[in-house]
Amino acid sequence: MGLNKDIAAQLAEARLAEWKRDGHDEWRAMIDDKNLRRVVGEDGKRYTVVSHAFDDGDGRVRMSVAVDDGGLSALVPLVRDDIMRPDGTFVR
């Protein structure tokens, strides 16, 4: 059936929202850390949510989240990311 992109996007955005509650210092502390979670989506399928923080230059920190359902989407997961500036605002 393939990856349910709506559910995958919801899971990715939820993970980014967790990070947005933290400040820039907390984001910087996570640089080069990866986090893997296995969650069950509202459709009952298991999803893998991998999040990674890295330095985006000029003091910015990029948070990237990839979501797949273990099938072919593991090769090309849905990816969402956000970038926080040193002042705590986000790049849009």
Rank of each mutant, 00 (worst) to 15 (best):
M84T: 01
R46D: 11
V67G: 01
R28L: 11
A17R: 09
H52S: 11
R38T: 13
L72G: 13
Y47T: 04
M84D: 01
A66W: 02
E13H: 07
G41N: 03
D81S: 15
R15C: 07
L78W: 00
R60Y: 06
D58M: 11
G88Y: 07
D33S: 13
F90G: 01
T48W: 04
D33A: 11
K45R: 15
D56A: 14
N4C: 03
P86Y: 04
H24Y: 15
E42G: 10
A29E: 10
V61F: 00
G44F: 04
G44P: 05
F54V: 07
S73D: 02
K5H: 07
G44L: 06
R38D: 08
A9C: 02
A12Y: 04
S64I: 09
L16S: 03
K5W: 05
D69I: 06
R60K: 14
V49P: 03
R62G: 00
R46E: 14
K45L: 11
M30F: 06
D6H: 06
D68G: 08
H52K: 13
F54S: 11
V65D: 06
R92A: 14
G2R: 10
L16P: 06
L36T: 14
R28T: 12
G59K: 03
F54Q: 09
T89M: 08
K20E: 15
K45F: 08
R21C: 01
A53N: 08
P86D: 02
L78P: 03
L72S: 12
R15H: 02
N35D: 13
A14N: 14
D33P: 00
N4M: 01
G41K: 05
V76R: 12
G57N: 08
A17C: 05
F90R: 14
R80V: 00
M84I: 13
K45D: 10
L78Y: 04
D43A: 09
E42F: 00
Q10D: 15
Y47D: 05
P77A: 06
L75I: 07
M1L: 10
F54L: 10
D43N: 12
Y47H: 05
W19G: 12
G70T: 08
E42S: 12
D68V: 04
L11S: 05
D22H: 10
N4W: 00
A74Y: 01
I31W: 00
V79K: 13
L16G: 08
T89E: 10
V61N: 02
S51I: 02
Q10L: 12
R62T: 08
E26A: 15
R92C: 06
H24M: 06
K34D: 10
S64G: 01
I31H: 01
M63A: 09
R60I: 01
T89P: 02
R46N: 11
Q10N: 13
E42Y: 00
N35Y: 09
N4P: 03
R80F: 02
V39L: 14
T48P: 00
D32S: 09
D6F: 03
R92M: 11
L11H: 07
A8D: 06
V61W: 01
I83A: 00
D32Q: 11
K45P: 00
D33T: 11
D6R: 09
P86I: 08
R15D: 11
E13K: 14
G70S: 07
V91I: 10
A9F: 01
G71Y: 04
L75K: 07
V49S: 09
V79A: 03
M30Y: 04
R28S: 09
D82A: 15
D32W: 07
